[in-house]
Each structure stands twice: as structure tokens, then as C-alpha cells.
Computed example of a mutant assay.
Amino acid sequence: DLSTKRATAIVNILRENSSINPENLTAAGRCEYAPIAPNDTSEGRAKNRRLEVVLTPKLDEISKLLNDM
């Protein structure tokens, strides 16, 4: 629940930027399903409290650009 709230908070901040189409934003929490460190130490838990931004291209637009060349 906390990871989803963290992701949603960042998406809400990004939506304040008028040059970003809000339809292109998605928030997802991974919680215990994608740790990068063990949770048995405070250092590991701190590493797992992270935000990852994943940029994905619009494949149809890339295809159009390549076809126009």
C-alpha cells in the first residue's frame, strides 16, 4: 500500500506539469514483489524505498518516423 501511495504521489506531481499528457502516466507499487535488497536490515529497507521511472516509447510514432525516412 505504501509503495502505491508513493508512486501515486509522484504521478500527481507530474500531472501539475502542463507539458506532460496525464494519459501517459501510470502509478504502480511493487512492494515486496521487486526488492533490490534484503529487508532484514535498515540499509536494505532504505534501498527498497525507491522510485523508478520507466520511460516507454510510443512504438507507432517510432514506426511512422522510420517509414518517413
Rank of each mutant, 00 (worst) to 15 (best):
D60L: 05
S19M: 06
K58E: 13
I20K: 01
I20L: 08
R50V: 00
S3M: 01
I36P: 05
P38V: 12
L59K: 11
G44A: 05
R30G: 06
N48T: 05
P57N: 10
L2I: 06
K64N: 11
T26H: 08
A34P: 01
D1E: 11
E43I: 11
D1A: 11
I20F: 00
R6K: 11
L65C: 04
N48V: 04
L65N: 12
P22Q: 03
G29S: 01
N21P: 04
L25G: 03
D68N: 14
S63V: 12
E43G: 07
S63L: 11
V11N: 02
D40C: 09
E32L: 08
L59T: 12
L25N: 04
K47T: 09
R15N: 02
G44P: 02
S42F: 06
K5G: 14
G44I: 05
E23N: 15
P38F: 10
Y33P: 03
N21W: 01
P35H: 00
V53E: 08
T26S: 12
P38W: 07
L14W: 04
N17C: 09
A7V: 07
I20H: 01
N12V: 07
K5H: 10
E61T: 09
L59Q: 13
P38L: 14
Y33N: 14
E32R: 06
P35W: 00
D68R: 12
D60M: 00
D40Y: 13
R15G: 01
V54A: 10
E32V: 09
P38S: 14
